[in-house]
Write a protein that binds this DNA or RNA. Structure first.
Length: 690
DNA sequence: GAGCACTGC
């Protein structure tokens, strides 16, 4: 069944031979195979830490590395897993004074990474977080005026760029994990490049850019940053044997079960397995099936089967880190959270189905499509690498070598797959008016940028004086950009002043911008439904969310109460923090806080005014038709209005799952819509039923 | 009539 070859991530690194790297050697470092630094090693003696630092593969290359970076305006650093680049390069820069006394920003795509890397660096420097080393993420600022190494999320630096597009407080910007190509990182590429250029032209202090990546597609990065030299670092990965199937597999979930039992029969029990599948349902049913099968196999070692996906409650997620009981084999069945966000110790085998659930945005219809697609080669390699973190491993790919060959090299960057209205608003708030020609590393479709501009224009955030003119940010747009929200939600907040319901709208928008506060378990559906009934409003989901938050507040955010009411404590608390942040921004803008009390009709009027682009009418067939693009859509089964047939609704978002679904739906009066946007409905030739 | 990959400000 299996075809075998070796995947060797530990191969000798190539060395760049550009003219700016005359020596052409030295980047490869020395190191052999040793465990990568442990981020949780508190209280270790300083000498041991120094030893660990010196043992990193990057260490022997540090002087040449710094000498190069010192004279280059931009550099690309390619470092494999375990090279130590993330923790060491910022320290080397500081120790060598490359920053010239100013601050160095180091960005990460994820909050936990920003915090944990910062903690590790503080420890290595024998100092405390918040002094010379600190971090800044949303809701948390652990820096002071004297902080020189600032670890932050890429989204945070992007927010700072809205206030200061030249990023004047930094002399060096390090963009880490650039290969992940998050929207934020991609926008930052253009922003830091423009800032560097601008500072050069205006005689300001120069800005140095360091892009750190694990990508194979280094030329693309180098070309974009004015042919910046590429500096290679050796990593610490163990060899991994890769197996492909001889034939394509029609049912990968079934194949993964078969493959697991093959491993289970052959390999020692101590060797753990990580299986990549695509989603919650698929994982839950595989877990159930495997648990059943392992009960029937008394003669084999016991299996400890654990699901892992982001929506899983934290107390269940941490189980994958617990020590496997003696005589057991741990099998973790995960989504792509286990690719980057969560590293599981002890994995010796990876089973990769070669699929991933991905969201693709269709600018023409405004519809998000969530579906299972093939992984890219880069993503496949990332999954394979998870088998070789601590020792040599094996990866079983549930597809043929030919199928691997047909995969695209890299995952399409998120910026080419998402709604751009927020990105475009932010760029314009930074003073970039010609967004059509903005220097993206990979440009989104022209149609997608135009759709975003059109939406912003309809929301009143952008205007064109004449057709030939460049779009211009309006004062309203400027105010909207201050909110870390989807523009349509920012608009609703600003509108709520006129409707006397600022407090209520802040609550609703806060909840809409976090993960679902409701816990939905299929096996407890009836119980959940009866408990939740007291929050449900016939006006729709938005008022239901408001009722829920009000109840949560009336019990002072009690955790037990959340548990009893099937409310996700963590998510509703995040909503509370978001609300606080949004309220502060309102204060800064001089917004008067008002409340409508029980008169929630005003809230719906406000929602109608802000969400008129997201409205749908009941059709004769009993489903709904959207006004914007005449799509046939349905109310999502989780909605408070699932069983209802209101004549006219507004919704927060559209997603194509099996059918096209509207999520978070509220009943509105068609006349309200007509009043707030008469020209829009006239242009759409829609006669709203009354 | 029946359902949701992953981040982040």
């Amino acid at each position: 069944m299996w075809h075998k070859h070796m995947h060797s991530p530990a191969k000798k690194p190539k060395v760049e031979h550009s003219s700016s790297n005359p020596g052409g050697s030295g980047w490869s470092g020395g190191g052999g195979f040793k465990n990568s630094p442990k981020l949780e090693g508190h209280g270790q003696p300083n000498e041991a830490l120094k030893q660990e630092r010196r043992a990193l593969p990057i260490y022997p290359a540090r002087q040449q590395l710094i000498a190069q970076i010192r004279r280059l305006p931009s550099a690309i650093v390619i470092g494999e897993t375990g090279s130590g680049k993330t923790t060491q390069i910022p320290q080397y820069l500081l120790e060598a004074g490359v920053n010239g006394g100013a601050a160095i920003a180091i960005t990460q795509p994820r909050r936990v990474a920003a915090v944990s890397v910062c903690q590790r660096v503080a420890q290595e420097k024998n100092t405390t977080v918040g002094t010379s080393v600190g971090y800044r993420i949303r809701f948390e600022d652990a820096t002071s005026s004297s902080t020189k190494l600032i670890f932050m999320t890429d989204g945070m630096l992007l927010r700072e760029a809205i206030l200061d597009s030249k990023l004047t407080k930094y002399s060096v910007i390090v963009l880490d994990e650039a290969h992940e190509r998050t929207v934020h990182t991609d926008v930052l590429f253009g922003v830091v490049k423009a800032a560097q250029n601008c500072r050069l032209k205006t005689g300001l202090k120069l800005l140095k850019i360091i892009v750190m990546s694990a990508t194979m597609d280094v030329d693309h990065f180098s070309r974009y940053f004015n042919k910046a030299p590429v500096l290679y670092l050796e990593g610490r990965q163990f060899p991994i044997q890769v197996m492909h199937t001889a034939e394509p597999q029609s049912d990968y979930a079934f194949s993964s079960v078969v493959t697991l039992f093959k491993i289970h029969k052959e390999a020692p029990a101590r060797e753990d397995v990580l299986i990549f599948l695509t989603g919650q349902d698929e994982i839950d049913s595989a877990v159930k099936q495997l648990r059943q099968l392992s009960r029937d196999m008394q003669d084999l070692p016991k299996l400890l089967i654990l699901p892992l996906y982001a929506a899983l409650p934290p107390q269940q997620q941490v189980k994958v880190f617990e020590k496997t009981p003696p005589g057991h084999r741990k099998v973790v069945i995960a989504t792509n959270v286990a690719e980057t966000s969560i590293t599981i110790p002890g994995i010796k085998f990876v089973i990769d189905c070669g699929k991933v659930k991905a969201k693709v945005f269709n600018a023409r219809t405004g519809l998000d499509i969530l579906r299972v697609v093939n992984t890219s080669k880069a993503q496949t390699l990332q999954r394979t690498g998870r088998a070789g973190r601590e020792s040599a491993g094996t990866c079983y790919r549930l597809f043929t070598e030919a199928q691997f060959g047909e995969m695209s090299s890299n995952t399409v960057p998120e910026i080419q797959r998402c709604n751009l209205s927020s990105v475009i608003l932010q760029l314009m708030a930074m003073g970039i008016s010609d967004v059509m020609t903005f220097d993206f590393m990979d440009k989104p479709d022209r149609e997608s940028i135009l759709a975003a501009l059109t939406e912003l224009e309809l929301l009143g955030a952008v205007e064109k004086i004449s057709e030939s003119d460049m779009p211009k940010l309006t004062p309203l747009g400027k105010r909207m950009a201050a909110f870390p929200l989807d523009p349509k939600y920012a608009k609703i907040i600003l509108l709520s002043q006129e409707y006397g319901c600022v407090e209520e709208v802040l609550t609703i928008v806060s909840i809409l911008s976090v993960d679902d506060i409701f816990i939905n378990q299929m096996n407890k559906r009836d119980e959940i439904q009866s408990v939740r009934q007291k929050f449900v409003s016939s006006e729709g989901d938005h008022i239901t969310l408001l009722n829920t938050f009000r109840a949560f507040k009336s019990v002072n955010g009690n955790k037990a109460w959340c548990f009893e009411n099937f409310i996700n404590y963590r998510h509703i608390n995040t909503a509370r923090e978001v609300r606080k942040q949004l309220r502060d921004i309102c204060s800064c803008q001089g917004i008067q806080f008002s409340s409508c009390g029980k008169d929630t009709e005003n809230v719906r009027k406000c929602l109608a005014a802000g969400l008129f682009l997201n409205c749908a009418q009941l059709s004769k067939q009993g489903d709904f038709t959207t006004v914007s693009s005449r799509l046939t859509v349905s109310i999502h089964p989780a909605s408070a209005l699932f069983h209802c047939k209101p004549a006219c609704v507004v919704y927060s978002e559209l997603i194509k799952l099996g059918k096209n679904y509207m999520r978070n739906v509220s009943v509105v009066d068609p006349e309200w819509l007509q009043e707030v946007a008469p020209s829009y409905f006239k242009q759409k030739k829609v006669h709203l039923m009354t």
